[in-house]
């Protein structure tokens, strides 16, 4: 069990390290979107929850994809458990 946790930790740091340059490259673009909503414009229009509507609403698609993927994976996990239970029953 302990080794698995260590492996997971390693993986997480690895994934974070990999994704960092990708985000760094998209940083200037984010800067331009901030310029677009310039301070005087922000002052004139009321504040809204715009985070998920940024960049052509791509974040919504990402959320949908993650949900679908998680659904399928959870289904696989439950199948895995059911088969495991059957295996234990047959062994007894």
């Amino acid at each position: 069990m302990k080794m698995h946790k260590w492996l997971l930790m390693l993986l997480l740091t690895w994934a974070a390290g990999f994704s960092a340059p990708a985000y760094a490259q998209s940083a200037p673009e984010q800067g331009s979107t901030i310029e677009y909503t310039s301070p005087d414009k922000a002052a004139s229009s009321p504040e809204m929850a715009d985070v998920l509507r940024r960049d052509g609403k791509i974040y919504i698609v990402v959320a949908v994809l993650v949900s679908v993927l998680l659904g399928v994976l959870l289904y696989l996990i439950s199948l895995d458990k059911k088969i495991g239970r059957l295996e234990r029953e047959l062994r007894q």
Binding site: L8, L11, S19, A22, V61, L65, L69, L73
Partner: peptide, 18 residues
Amino acid sequence: WLTILLLLYTVVVGMLSE
């Protein structure tokens, strides 16, 4: 666990990265 992690990484970073 690795499968789950890699697939989530693929979907999120794959859609958002430059």
